[in-house]
């Protein structure tokens, strides 16, 4: 009955899928990055700081951050994903923006905008987390002043087990309750800048999941750091 073995063959319940990341992959963007975790791939391109129009959106104290999350039509494992903004992608764009803003210092660029475009050519759950990881590398690559990187992963529970980095088969597990908790962390302070939840989880399980997630996020941070340093090898 209980969930005893991970469906995709991972050995441990707190094991991440294989990760790879690369910075500076889109030459015409001011900063860009690719972040792959398992079968989920995210590309992020940063443009800016650049002039912001319409003018009423300008903030004379700082630049604003505009994130744009989009799944490509062929990216899902099921039906074609209808391209363009929809309820889900608008929400994810908004939470991505809010998870990245705490590390950014855009006060040097009043009235301007920093645009972040996140595209997902292939997804297998955890796409917003992959998007945030890619966007964070791309922002650093664009030379935007930032306090730290942001790393994200989803944690949660499948049946009675606390798991890290759920893939789609785990999210869709139907023999017991599932909870999916995407989280983002600022590694230097341990602050959480994104925390959402879908499903059922007890308080104790949630705390345990977040603590496990925090440990695992440091592994992702190392990958992000390596990706940026590799560019200048």
């Amino acid at each position: 009955m209980a969930y005893t073995k991970r469906l995709d063959g991972r050995k441990k319940f707190d094991e991440l899928r294989p990760i790879s990341a690369k910075a500076g992959i889109i030459p015409r963007a001011h900063g860009s990055a690719m972040f792959q975790i398992g079968k989920t791939i995210a590309y992020a391109a940063v443009y800016g700081p650049r002039e912001l129009h319409p003018k009423f959106m300008q903030n004379p104290k700082t630049a604003i951050l505009r994130c744009h999350y989009s799944m490509m039509p062929f990216s899902g494992s099921g039906d074609r994903v209808r391209p363009g903004p929809n309820r889900r992608s608008k929400e994810i764009s908004m939470v991505t923006e809010k998870s990245l803003l705490p590390v950014l210092d855009l006060s040097q660029f009043p009235n301007a905008v920093v645009d972040v475009f996140i595209e997902l050519p292939q997804t297998d759950a955890g796409s917003r987390c992959a998007g945030i990881c890619a966007a964070s590398i791309a922002l650093a690559d664009a030379g935007i002043p930032m306090r730290d990187m942001v790393c994200a992963v989803s944690v949660g529970r499948v049946d009675d087990k606390i798991v890290v980095d759920l893939d789609y088969s785990e999210e869709a597990y139907d023999k017991g309750p599932v909870a999916d908790v995407p989280m983002a962390m600022i590694p230097s302070t341990g602050e959480i800048s994104l925390l959402q939840m879908d499903g059922e989880i007890s308080k104790e399980q949630l705390i345990e999941a977040l603590e496990t997630g925090k440990q695992k996020l440091l592994e992702i941070y190392e990958v992000q750091k390596k990706a940026l340093k590799e560019k200048y090898k």
Binding site: H30, G31, G48, P49, R50, D105, Q108, F109, A140, D141, A142, G143, I144, P145, M146, R147, D148, S188, L228, Y232
Partner: peptide, 25 residues
């Protein structure tokens, strides 16, 4: 701590960063 992607410069006790990317200000 570093606030930008760049190369570290150490001048005595002063630590600074020469940025490697970023738009013109």
């Amino acid at each position: 701590r570093a606030a930008k992607l760049g190369l570290v410069r150490i001048e005595g006790k002063v630590v600074k960063i020469t940025p490697l990317s970023g738009r013109y200000l």
